[in-house]
């Protein structure tokens, strides 16, 4: 039976009708049109679907829409506000850390979350934050570099 839920996504309020078996990822993508988060595996292994629930990063393929009624959700689309991209997005461009782009939104969300928890993350913190994010293109070299480089932007 469909249920009405309220979500605040990237600062906008939505009231929508969802099936109980729709994951948060599906609700965001198919109902609300936030297609930034991607489904790569559907079981929490790849990290491409990472979003924030009340500022905590989670894998949205493992959460039901109905479970988070009333929550505040942030997707990759919400990281760039007022035409300004976030520090980590800038750093990804600087370091050439984007290739096919499918894992990118999840990577960016995870690193951005790291910077809200740790002001000066080291290489190990970065790798810990990304240990459940798979990338098949880059060999992760530029992603680690971008995560380090982002420091410059978050300090300001």
């Amino acid at each position: 039976m469909k249920k009405i839920i309220k979500l605040r996504v990237n600062g906008e309020d939505y009231e929508i009708l969802v099936e109980p078996y729709w994951t948060l990822l599906k609700v965001l993508r198919d109902v609300l049109g936030f297609t930034g988060p991607k489904e790569g595996c559907g079981i929490g292994e790849c990290g491409a679907c990472t979003v924030y629930i009340d500022d905590k990063p989670v894998k949205s393929c493992l959460v039901l829409g109905v479970e988070v009624n009333g929550a505040n959700i942030t997707t990759i689309e919400g990281l760039s506000q007022n035409k300004k991209i976030s520090g980590i997005q800038k750093a990804f461009i600087d370091e050439g850390a984007v290739q096919c782009g499918f894992c990118t939104p999840g990577m960016v969300m995870a690193i951005n979350a790291l910077y809200t928890n740790v002001s000066d993350p080291g290489e190990d913190d970065i790798k810990e934050a990304l240990k459940g994010h798979l990338c098949r293109c880059t060999g992760y070299e530029t992603i680690v570099k971008a995560a380090k480089r982002a420091k410059e932007y978050y300090k300001r």
Partner: peptide, 9 residues
């Protein structure tokens, strides 16, 4: 267990 995001749930 899992990773940071899994452990949040």
């Amino acid at each position: 267990l899992g990773d940071y995001e899994i452990r949040n749930r």
